[in-house]
């Protein structure tokens, strides 16, 4: 489903170049639950931007369902994002002047659904996330956990095969955070491909497979249970840094 082939992302930084991704190759099969972990600056955010078709690699190829998307232009990428990907962000990223229902309808709006279909799909997604009674609320009227659930509903509404969650628990307390992770797990169990980006090893352990990035390179790629055992050796640089 997802295949990165020797992907580089290089940013010019004054006279030097920063290799945010330095030859990353990664395959994710349909229906996997993968956590991409790494400290801040490890390249995991860049990796997520590229997987999420928000950015294109400087070099290398990215195949999504067998199609090379690494050379696509902006409007084609917009279409791919709309049909293939659902995003869950750390900061929820709901649009403040739209109510929850309208926020969840947004991907469907750009997919060209009629208003009746949009309402129906968005309502179903919101009900599933337990927000059926908050349709007309604005994001600011909801708690952090509710906002993040609305964001998950938005990611789900168009039923895309891939869910990309970027530090989805970062702004939540640990109990609400665990609740979010359970939602992600249930999506995985339903057959969605779930990719979770996090700096937190314990959260990564909730996934089925862990990919660890350091300095733009993959240093671990394997089952989550083995990663948990190894994590103590991989984390040799003291306490966790806060996410950027």
């Amino acid at each position: 489903m997802i295949e990165l082939r020797n992907v580089y992302k290089i940013y010019p930084m004054g006279d030097t170049e920063v290799h945010a991704l330095d030859g990353v190759s990664l395959r994710v099969a349909a229906g996997e639950f993968v956590a991409i972990v790494g400290r801040s600056g490890s390249g995991k955010s860049t990796c997520m931007n590229i997987i999420g078709c928000l950015d294109v690699p400087t070099a290398g190829q990215y195949f999504l369902q067998g199609v090379d998307v690494s050379r696509m232009e902006e409007n084609e990428l917009a279409l791919v994002r709309n049909r293939m990907l659902g995003f869950v962000f750390q900061q929820y990223n709901l649009i403040p002047n739209l109510n929850i229902l309208e926020n969840v309808e947004l991907p469907l709006l750009y997919a060209g659904y009629g208003s009746a279909e949009r309402h129906k799909a968005a309502r179903t997604a919101l009900k599933r996330l337990g927000l059926g009674d908050k349709l007309r609320h604005r994001p600011a009227q909801l708690s952090g956990g509710q906002q993040q659930r609305a964001a998950i509903a938005r990611a789900l509404a168009g039923n895309p095969p891939i869910i990309l969650a970027d530090e989805p628990t970062g702004a939540l307390d640990s109990r609400t955070g665990r609740e979010m992770l359970r939602y992600l797990q249930s999506l995985y169990q339903e057959g969605h491909t779930v990719i979770l980006i996090t700096h937190d090893n314990t959260i990564a352990a909730m996934a089925q497979r862990v990919v660890r990035l350091e300095d733009g390179k993959i240093v671990y790629d394997g089952p989550a249970d083995r990663y948990s055992a190894l994590a103590v050796f991989l984390e040799d640089s003291g306490p966790e840094e806060a996410q950027q």
Binding site: L54, E74, N75, A78, R81, N82, F87, N93, P96, A111
Partner: peptide, 16 residues
Amino acid sequence: TREIGIRKAVGARRRD
């Protein structure tokens, strides 16, 4: 700007 970013992330094209 952030709203524009969100809209683009969920699939808005330039002309949208």
